[in-house]
Amino acid sequence: MEGKENIENTLKSANSKGDSFSFSRDYLMRLLLVLADAPTNLKIESFDKKTIQKIRDDWENLSKAFINMVETLVSIGLSDGFLTSYNATMPIVYFIYKGGKINSEGAKKEIRKFLSISMAKRLFGVASNDALRSTRAALQSYDCKKNPFVLSIFDSVTLTGNRTFKVEETDIDYWLDNYTIGPNTYIILSLLYPTLKLSQESFHQDHCHPHVSFDDKPISSLGLSEETVREWQYKRNLLPNLQFLEGRENESKNKTPLKDWIADGNTIKFLPSGVSLELKDFDVFFTERRKLIRGELIRIFNIKIITE
């Protein structure tokens, strides 16, 4: 009974932090297997007597490592709505459990990168047991007590389907051209806006050119082809037309055309210079801002560009 109460109390504590989470009992049971260096398959036989005893004996440290990780998620502005893979957080808990520290800004930056790659590339969504075993093995050969949490810990990890934690230009292009506003764009924006205190203020994903400007009625006045209209209506929700904006400011901006909003003294990050902000020139704005964001992501992930 005590073990069950410990699990329920720990989950209740974790899920109530920040803007709330949805850590499940299955998640915590699998996490305990990961931390105990046991088989990660969530099956009865995985919980042999030795593993159960290890969990009982070290429950305090196991649960502290988990709660520490959750508090770190809160500090970098994440909550249930922005986590597409809870399993991706388990290697972070393992790092903490093995004596690692993640309180520095440098460590938090690397955790953002790790989670953004894990979720954007869906590394823990397919063959999750393989992903958990492989990342744990990388951490087992790493001195967590003496070294910081860095993305490069997982450079040698290759998962089922030849998937890796390395980011290539093709990955960035895929994110920019396919991920519409939601959890994936949020965590990528968090990389692009590293100085924002996401845990202290409510930041919204704002459309640079307002979402409503692309609705059928207003956009029809531009005389665009039906194909272009549909293309722009898709592009409005992609990263090159998104920014972080404090909640109250976003509500104030609302339907204001981008040109007017900038003319009122506001600005946006990655604003291309010398480019028209009229809606009729959206394609040029989108293309040029995409280049700026792409360049910054290439810098963040330290991708070496090979020129012929």
Rank of each mutant, 00 (worst) to 15 (best):
N6H: 11
I7H: 03
S13Y: 14
A14C: 06
R25M: 08
L28I: 11
L28R: 01
L35V: 08
L35H: 02
A36N: 01
N41D: 12
I44V: 11
S46W: 07
K50Y: 11
T51I: 15
D58M: 06
E60F: 11
L62I: 15
E71F: 04
S79I: 05
G81P: 04
T84C: 10
M90C: 01
P91K: 08
I96L: 11
K101Y: 08
E105P: 04
G106K: 12
R112D: 05
S118I: 05
K121V: 07
V126F: 09
N129M: 02
R133V: 13
Y142A: 08
Y142G: 00
D143Q: 02
F149Y: 03
T164A: 06
F165L: 10
K166P: 08
V167S: 00
T170S: 14
I172Y: 03
Y179T: 00
T180W: 07
G182W: 02
P183I: 09
P183T: 06
L189S: 01
L192V: 05
E201S: 13
E201R: 14
F203T: 06
H211A: 10
S220W: 02
S221E: 14
R236Q: 11
R236H: 04
L242Q: 05
L242K: 01
L245R: 04
E246Q: 13
L258A: 05
W261F: 15
D264M: 15
L277F: 13
L279V: 12
L279N: 04
V284S: 10
V284T: 13
V284L: 15
K291W: 03
I293P: 00
R294D: 06
I300S: 05
I300N: 01
N302M: 11
I303H: 02
